[in-house]
Design a protein around this nucleic acid. Structure first.
Length: 403
RNA sequence: GUGAGAUUAGCUCAGUUGGUUAGAGCACUGGUUUGUGGUGCCGGGGGUCGCGGGUUCGAAUCCCGUAUCUCACCCCA
């Protein structure tokens, strides 16, 4: 038997219902905020991700589905959504057009990782990107949007906030931190020693308790922001407070992707195992410029759909559609015709076999039909049909031609 | 890439120190006087015990390998 590849799942039945319910809800919210759908290719030039996500990240270093295509192009299945949207934004010259451009997208992302709870090789994200808006209000708008989506889905969360600074203050802070960590290099874990070379800021969210104890005394990102970043972060907190959105400050919250600056946020759930981040985002003012566009401030977020699938509280399903059953072999043709007619407007389920009344009504109940119709010898003779409302337990008799 | 635990019917799982033809519940399906539904009654189908080797008179059971799943690490949504 041929099976799906590791970490690649089929979505059907109940999962598909939840999946589409999520997409529909998130789409509705994003549209209420004035965002427009954008679809970008699953396959992009490898260089796009190397330059945007950053060579130091594991995503680019070891998790990309990268290959040479038949035209000798070095290509990748996208590991995340922002890079492609930024590329499209620049390619369509929207950076030169000026003004605000706001997009949302959803689709498959690919990372060659060992699967575990809430992590797949092909997974789905819903994301939003806003270009051309410098204001910290837009950062708050992003957070509000995620919050609205999660609330509509009945999902509880904690919001964690940090500021990563900008080109002005981050490099100085990084140097301070490296200096501090190097002094205790002998006491920290292997991973942190490696991080010192690849991505020093990441030592901050090391899960090793011993490391964390050591880093308690390390210089804090939030105490080393320049005036502009510090002001923005204060405004951010104030606006959130004014709008009743609760948050926690986590100075150790860092983002794994190189392109983030200033506002960084993560929505986490305590009910889904160790991969607890269900949404993450922040500002990335330098990325457009970095990908050869005109300097354009930008902010966005992405939601990991699989991570919150089991948290979604589905609305109660109500009875829907018709079930039409035949009690005689001779009535099956008529049932087929009635169904064909009714299917122009309604959901209709039929059985091609003649059964007795009880079996048909059981079947109608099982598939949760709202209306139950039966054609037996009586109906064949008089041209009537019974329509029974299975919800209200009422029934009416109509002419078959009125059905 | 690293570590641990799993894999028996469509699903959830039993299966004794290795011993006849591998079981249950649910689901599916047929019947239960041609007329009223979630939980009536009676029957039926369905398994290469993940796959490949090995030990043994004999393996679902013990050993080795391998695939997949799960959980965790790394990393990330």
């Amino acid at each position: 038997m041929i099976k799906s590849l590791r970490g690649m799942n089929d979505i059907l039945s109940e999962d598909y219902k939840r999946f589409t319910y999520f997409i529909n809800t998130a789409t509705k919210v994003a549209q209420r905020y004035g965002f427009h759908f954008i679809e970008t290719p699953l396959l992009e030039e490898t260089a796009l991700f190397k330059r945007s996500v950053g060579e130091s990240s594991d995503i680019v270093g070891k998790e990309m589905y990268q290959f040479i295509d038949k035209g000798q192009n070095d290509v990748c299945l996208r590991p995340e959504g922002t890079a492609g949207v930024v590329r499209a934004f620049i390619q369509k010259k929207l950076d030169k057009a000026g003004g605000a451009h706001r997009f949302f997208y959803h689709g498959s992302m690919f990372r060659y990782e060992r699967p575990q709870k809430g992590r797949l090789r092909q997974f789905h994200q819903f994301g939003v990107e806003s270009f051309g808006v410098n204001s910290v209000y837009e950062d708050v708008t992003m957070i509000m949007m995620v919050s609205d989506i999660l609330k509509e889905l009945g999902i509880g969360y904690r919001l964690q906030l940090n500021s990563l600074g900008d080109n002005n203050c981050m490099p100085d802070y990084r140097n301070k931190l490296v200096k501090f960590v190097k002094e205790c290099e002998d006491d920290i874990c292997e991973d942190c020693v490696r991080r010192l070379d690849t991505n020093p800021i990441r030592v901050l969210d090391c899960k090793n308790d011993k490391c964390q104890t050591i880093y308690d005394g390390a210089p804090k990102l939030l105490n080393n922001l320049c005036d502009s970043c510090d002001d923005d972060f204060s405004s951010l907190k104030k606006i959130l407070q004014n709008n009743g959105i609760e948050y926690e400050i986590d100075t150790n919250l860092v983002r794994g992707l190189d392109y983030y600056s200033k506002t960084a946020f993560e929505f986490v759930s305590d009910n889904i195992g160790s991969q607890s981040a269900i949404a993450g985002g922040g500002r990335y003012d330098k990325l457009v410029e970095f990908l050869d566009g005109r300097p354009t401030p930008a902010v966005g977020f992405a939601i990991g759909i699989e991570r919150l699938m089991e948290l979604i509280v589905m609305p109660e399903t109500s009875r829907d559609g018709y079930y039409i059953g035949a009690m005689d072999e001779e009535a099956v043709d008529l049932v087929m015709s009635l169904a064909h007619k009714k299917r122009k407007t309604d959901k209709v389920t039929i059985d091609y076999k003649a059964k007795n009344f009880k079996n048909h009504i059981k079947a109608a109940d099982k598939i949760c039909a709202k209306y139950f119709c039966i054609i037996g010898s009586n109906e064949m003779k008089d041209g009537n049909m019974i329509i029974k409302d299975l919800q209200n337990k009422t029934e009416i008799i109509i002419k078959q031609e009125e059905f």
